[in-house]
């Protein structure tokens, strides 16, 4: 693994909602090229953490550094231009636009920045091909089945040419078959050199993909280690994984 602490650094980050500490003094860093999983029970603060990293929320306190730059005060679109892309847990397709147009919009900005040299339509087609949606390119996004909307979210994020990709529960609501195929897609994205942070409830997929896992509970990090380490961690097992964790840990 490459040097951690230089790519993404989250330093004493907190976000309070009227007294509720959704993210509570969280510190961690992610190395370039790493695949980090973030797990934790519902309401643990995972999505809030993503919103802070991507600039959709302003932190109550703390800092975020990306490639050595303090990005804490930057707007979401500025962070995208720096190379941070995200998907939404509750999908947000441009419903009335076609699948192709959805992806082209993200590619347009990347092309204006010079990140894409080729024609943005060709590039968008390549991205759609990668996630397996090219056959749907002319369909209005609102007509896509749920599993494919999830893929569209990822395609759109990829079209911004990110260096860091944040995926918020991309597997939720997918069938077993869909999970398997999406898992391959995400794996190949990581193999292309993109650093990935994956929030996931489908533990099996998350454990299989992640090199390292952070466990959040009540806004705090309660464990940080390899999937194996995390699964063996008593605190994690008690606080979150419960019986399922024990089952997983014992194979």
């Amino acid at each position: 693994m490459s040097r951690s602490g230089e790519f993404l650094e989250v330093i004493n980050l907190s976000k309070h909602f009227k007294g509720l500490r959704a993210v509570d003094d969280v510190t961690f860093s992610v190395g370039n090229g790493e695949f980090l999983g973030i797990i934790g029970p519902n309401g643990a603060g995972k999505t809030t953490l993503f919103n802070l990293i991507t600039g959709f929320l302003k932190p109550t306190s703390g800092e975020i550094h990306f490639v050595g730059r303090d990005i804490t005060g930057m707007k979401p679109h500025e962070r995208v231009k720096l190379g941070i892309a995200r998907t939404f847990q509750v999908t947000k397709p441009f419903k009335k636009l076609t699948v192709m147009e959805n992806v082209i919009i993200a590619a347009l900005i990347a092309r204006k920045q010079g990140k894409i040299k080729e024609d943005e339509k060709n590039f968008a087609a390549e991205v759609l091909e990668k996630v397996g949606l090219l056959h749907r390119k002319d369909m209005a996004a609102e007509n896509l089945p749920h599993g494919e909307v999830k893929k569209l979210e990822i395609a759109r994020a990829l079209a911004t040419k990110p260096e860091l990709l944040l995926l918020d529960e991309p597997f939720s609501g997918l069938t077993g078959e869909e999970v398997a195929s999406l898992q391959e897609v995400i794996k190949s994205i990581h193999e292309d050199g993109i650093t990935v942070i994956l929030i996931e409830h489908v533990l099996k997929a998350c454990m299989a993909l992640s090199e390292r896992i952070i466990v959040l509970n009540y806004g705090k990090i309660i464990a940080d280690g390899t999937p194996e380490e995390v699964c063996m961690d008593k605190q994690v097992i008690e606080a979150y994984l419960g019986r399922r964790g024990l089952e997983f840990a014992s194979g």
């Binding site: 679109h77 995208v80 892309a85 947000k92 397709p93 441009f94 419903k95 636009l97």
Partner: peptide, 17 residues
């Protein structure tokens, strides 16, 4: 097209840069 995207979903448009 960008204006349409903003109409459809402003957050998603931001996430597109």
């Amino acid at each position: 097209l960008i204006l349409k995207a903003i109409k459809e979903d402003e957050d998603a448009a931001m996430a597109c840069g």
